[in-house]
Structure formats: structure tokens, C-alpha cells
Amino acid sequence: MSQLFPGAVVEPVELAEANGMVCIRTASVSDVQNLSVYFTGLSTTSRNKRFMGARTDFALVAAECVARTGRPGYFTLLAEVRQQGQHTIIGEANYTYDATARHGEFAISVADAFQRLGLGLQIMTAMETRAADLGHEMIAAETARTNAEMRGLAKKAGFRDTGLGDWQSVHLAKRLSR
């Protein structure tokens, strides 16, 4: 991809609001601490939307996100801004393939200061490309019915409501193409 950004899964982009380059790359075990710091830095509202409820064990969550890195069908993508030699995580997507259901499932978040700038769509597109490259044909997610931001992002990315949710949640799915 880019020699400046080794490990990038898509071409790095300049995000004016970030005052630097944004790189989307695959997480590794060495990212657990920084990912934990990222989760802690999300607003209470953003954390509740990402985890569909309250969580406080961010070091454990971060470790779980990267624990399966390298195993087929599991990956975490990190969006990080790089400024003056510093790397700061500003978004993430965690993907898990469910062989029984024959579709991938994901969760995604973007740091509060970087929401509504197109970063979420860039992360989702990178995640979908990676899943399609793994041969996966369907990707799905569940979100709270009240999470208008995720529902809007999913619609923009081509997901549809499957009708499988309940009174509190919406189940979204998309067929992947190669």
C-alpha cells in the first residue's frame, strides 16, 4: 500500500479536521493498550452505542478485539491519525465470521470529534473489502433501534434492515460482492 504507512489496508487519506493523515490498518497485539485508551476516551453515549450498553472493562474488551488477530475470519481494523510522529486511534471496527450462520458480524466506532466526517464509511468499506477478500458473502450487524447514526451509516453503506430485530434492536445485512 503506502511505504509511509506500512500495514495500511486502504490508501491513507488526509482528513482536514484531523490536521494529519488517516491510516486504516489491521490491529495487532501491540495495539491493546492504545485501543483501551481509545475506548476510554469515547463519550458515554458513543461507548453505549458501540457496546449496546454500559461497559467499563476496556482493557479486556481491547484484548478481546485483537486476541484472534491472524486467525481466519477475525480481524480488527484501526483508523489512526498520524501527526508529527504520533499515532492516535480515532476509529475501529471489529469483525468476526460466524461459520454456522455463514456471515460476518461487526461492531464499529468513531471517536466523537471525528464523527460525521465520512470516516465511519471509510472504515466500513475497508472492512467489507477485507471480508470479501476472505471469501465471505454476507455481513451483518445489530444495533439499537434508537441508534440513528449507525442506522444512517449502514443505509449509506448499502445495508438493509432484515426485519430480524426485536423492539429494541435492528438487524442489518449486506451481500458482499467481489
Rank of each mutant, 00 (worst) to 15 (best):
Y97E: 11
A131C: 07
G85T: 04
Q115C: 12
R55G: 05
H87P: 01
G53C: 10
A79H: 03
A107P: 07
A107C: 12
G120V: 15
R82E: 14
I108Y: 00
Q115H: 06
G73F: 05
R116T: 15
T44G: 02
R116G: 09
C65L: 11
F114M: 13
V110C: 02
D98W: 06
V81N: 10
M127T: 08
R116K: 13
V61Y: 03
L117S: 08
A99F: 07
R68G: 15
Q83C: 03
A99H: 13
L121H: 04
L121T: 06
T76V: 05
F51C: 14
Q84P: 00
F114E: 09
Q115G: 07
A107N: 06
R116Y: 02
F75V: 14
T129G: 03
R82L: 12
T129Y: 00
K49N: 13
R130K: 14
V81R: 12
T45F: 04
Q115I: 05
V110K: 02
A63E: 15
T100K: 03
L42W: 11
L77Y: 05
F58K: 09
A101S: 14
A99K: 12
A131R: 01
S46P: 09
R47M: 11
L117F: 06
K49W: 13
N94C: 07
I89H: 06
E80D: 14
A131D: 01
R71Y: 10
A54S: 12
T129Q: 11
R130F: 01
S109R: 06
L117I: 08
S109I: 11
G73D: 09
D98Y: 10
H103D: 14
A132M: 00
F114V: 12
L119T: 14
A54E: 12
D57R: 03
G91P: 07
A132H: 04
N94P: 01
R47P: 10
Q83L: 09
A99Q: 15
R68L: 11
R130T: 02
F106A: 07
C65N: 07
A59C: 01
L60G: 05
T88V: 07
A59I: 03
G104D: 10
S46Q: 11
